[in-house]
Amino acid sequence: MSYLPYALAGWIFVVGLYGVVSSRNLIHLAVCLTVMQSGTYVLLLAIGYKNGAAAPIFRPSHHPAVDPVVQALTLTDIVVSVTVVALILALALAAHKESGSVNPEEIADFSG
C-alpha cells in the first residue's frame, strides 16, 4: 500500500506518454505533455513526504516538516512546463494558420 503514490506517479507518466505518441491533434498533444509533467510532480512530492509532518512554514513556531527541497523543485518544474506548453501552443496556432489543420500527420511538410 505504501507504494501507491509512487505507482500513481508512474501511471500518470506512462499514460501521458501514450497520449503523446498516439495524438492526432497538437492541442491534445500539448495537454498530454502536461499530464506527463504532472506525473513527475507527484513523484517528487511523494518522495519528500513524512508521515505526521506538516508544511515547512514555521510560523508561529517550529514543528516537524516535510522536505522543502522537492517543493522548490516542483515549483520550478511548473514554471518550466507552462513555458514550454505556451511555445508549443503558439506553434500549433501558427501551424493552423498556415495549413488549416492541427493534426501532426497532416502538417508533415517534408520527410525522408
Partner: peptide
C-alpha cells in the same frame, strides 16, 4: 510564415520536451 519551419520547430520542441521529462 512557412509550414516547414513550424513542423521542424514542433518536432524539435515535442521530442526534446519528452526527453527533458
Amino acid at each position: 510564415e512557412r509550414l516547414g519551419p513550424i513542423q521542424g520547430a514542433l518536432n524539435f520542441a515535442i521530442t526534446n520536451t519528452v526527453a527533458a521529462l
